[in-house]
Nucleic acid binder design. Structure first.
Lengths: 256, 256
DNA sequence: GATACGGTCTGGTACGTACCAGTTGACTAT
DNA sequence: ATAGTCAACTGGTACGTACCAGACCGTATC
């Protein structure tokens, strides 16, 4: 198969289980990230409908989703443009590892435990494991994240065992998302995250080598892969030693 | 006008400058927040099209936007349901005003002070006002943001006076970004934001009607317009009353 | 009582038509 | 050289039709 064939293959929208608007969304995303630079215009809606053989409504639906994702923006009368990639990681955009490296620190991870359990109700609900027929076990994974040997955060996550068989046999000291995509073909593509402040309880304080009641920044995240929930994780960062930096672009910027 | 008339008025979708899908979006949002509780089903798409006299595509577009906003969720074969309100709004994506409205609260702003001063060193540095030849004054603006009359946050911001002449003559109880674009042609398009936890000092505690040492979630933001710094603002939210939710997409998701 | 089936609801996908509004460039008139 | 007009592009709105797939309920049968 020549490169041209591959490109044509890439470009083809087929009838099948995967909706056309999702196939097109992926194709346009690849185009935007691999062939265009921020500020460049993607082909017009009418051009995309001709090239891919779909209706304009399908094109619009596909592009809509990339706009919601922050990859594109539309300008009436002008076109649809690739958006500037964030200059730095947004909140938790970078992995813990990358975050610490950027801060000039050496990141390490201590695995505390990884066992298959019946998840607690909140995690079960987030993971869609709370109805009859969908109950089962999830990996409960607890890790302490360190920078230059200093504990910075405690993470407790739940991962459906049916989605990630034998997860305990993997090297869990690195990036879980890399393991998910490399070993399981699961690509985390969206997440909902909630942030609040709380005081450390005794076990958490011990793992963080901190006094009880140390202020914490807590992040709870539910991550999805292709629409299905794959991760429910709570990360507790020492609030006195950790702050978060993020870059926002136009569609992220709020009015004061 | 009787209540029934008001409801009918509320319900009417009219031709006019405001698109029907936006009018319907607002109507359904009101229905979802005022008449339904989380977990309840909204009227079906076909019912809404009959009641509001619009097409099903228009209904779906309106509902789509409420789903993106985190207000509703669809279940194929079952219906569209109201979602727990706390799951709304991305981190500072929406303005404070929109954020509070989505949480079903009435947002107001108390202007504490707005005066032209020489900015403190940190703000001056962020705004590029710390070198000879670029010194000058900046508006120091302090506001208390309230929801349903309850103070939620204190904001202190600095805005270069040369960029925003006569800012003190504007109505500063609303969205500054709207004023910037409408009156000054300045479009905020990027920002750097840092987040940490701290305890409230006495003046801040008083403005927030809280005890001293109340835990706060603090956001410091430096905003840019077309590459030039335009705003340095610190917002202190009561950590006990406020949590932040955000949605992350693929390029936002970090590795665990 | 359990199971299977059909009907009716729900949302999802995909197409099509028509027109509106914004932007831009070419062309023409002054 | 400048201003105005128009056509051709762009995205936006709105409607319509048709069919698919999931969920649920009622009924019939075993």
């Amino acid at each position: 198969m020549t490169l041209e064939d591959e490109q044509r293959q890439d470009q083809r929208i087929t009838d099948g289980p995967e909706p056309k608007h999702i196939q097109l969304s992926a194709a346009v995303a690849r185009l935007a990230t691999e062939s265009l630079t921020p500020g460049e215009m993607i082909p017009s809606e009418r051009t995309l409908m001709t090239e891919y053989g779909v209706s304009r409504a399908t094109v619009r639906k596909a592009v809509d989703s990339l706009i919601v994702d922050g990859l594109l923006r539309r300008v009436p009368g002008k076109g649809t443009f690739v958006v500037q990639p964030r200059l730095e990681s947004r909140l938790h955009l970078a992995s813990f590892t990358q975050d610490m490296r950027r801060r000039g620190l050496h990141p390490t991870t201590r695995l505390i435990s990884c066992e298959a359990v019946e998840p607690p109700p909140e995690a079960a609900a987030s993971l869609g494991m709370d109805t009859p027929g969908s109950r089962g076990r999830a990996w409960a994974l607890t890790r302490v994240r360190c920078a230059d040997g200093q504990p910075i955060a405690v993470e407790t996550g739940w991962y459906p065992a049916s989605l990630f068989p034998d997860l305990d046999r993997r090297d869990l000291a690195g990036s879980l998302y890399d393991i998910f995509s490399a070993d399981y073909g699961v690509l985390i593509d969206a997440a909902e995250q909630t942030l609040w402040g709380e005081a450390a309880d005794a076990p958490t304080a011990r793992m963080l080598e901190a006094e009880p009641a140390t202020p914490l920044l807590v992040f709870r995240r539910v991550s999805h892969a292709a629409g299905r929930p794959a991760e429910h994780v709570v990360s507790r960062y020492r609030g006195d030693r950790y702050q978060v930096h993020m870059s926002l672009s136009r569609d992220d910027v709020s009015s004061s």
